[in-house]
Amino acid sequence: MESEELLGGVNPNGGEQKEEKKQSPLVSLEKDLAFYADSIKEVAVEIMVEGISATPIFIAHQHEVKLGEMILNREELNTNWTIQASTLEEFIEKGIIKPEKKEHFLKNYKTPEDFMCVFVIVPEGANFIYYPYSKK
Rank of each mutant, 00 (worst) to 15 (best):
I47P: 02
K98I: 08
E90G: 00
F58D: 01
P112E: 07
V118Y: 06
C117N: 08
E75Q: 11
E90H: 02
Y131L: 07
Y109E: 03
K98C: 07
F128H: 02
I47T: 12
E93K: 04
A37C: 11
P123W: 05
Y130A: 12
K110P: 01
D32N: 12
F128P: 03
P12F: 06
N108Y: 06
T82L: 00
V10W: 10
K102M: 12
T79N: 03
V118I: 09
D38Q: 14
L7I: 00
L67E: 06
K101V: 11
K107Y: 05
N78Q: 14
E76S: 09
I121Y: 03
N108D: 15
E75Y: 12
P112Y: 00
Q84N: 05
E20A: 10
I71Q: 08
T55N: 07
N78R: 07
M1N: 12
F115Q: 03
K41C: 14
K94L: 00
E113T: 05
L67N: 01
T55E: 15
I52C: 06
I97E: 04
A37P: 02
E46K: 14
I40P: 03
P12Y: 02
N108T: 09
V10Y: 07
V120D: 02
W81D: 04
I83W: 02
K136C: 08
K136F: 10
Q84M: 03
I71P: 01
E50V: 04
G125W: 00
L67G: 01
K18M: 11
H104W: 03
I96R: 05
V49F: 08
E2K: 07
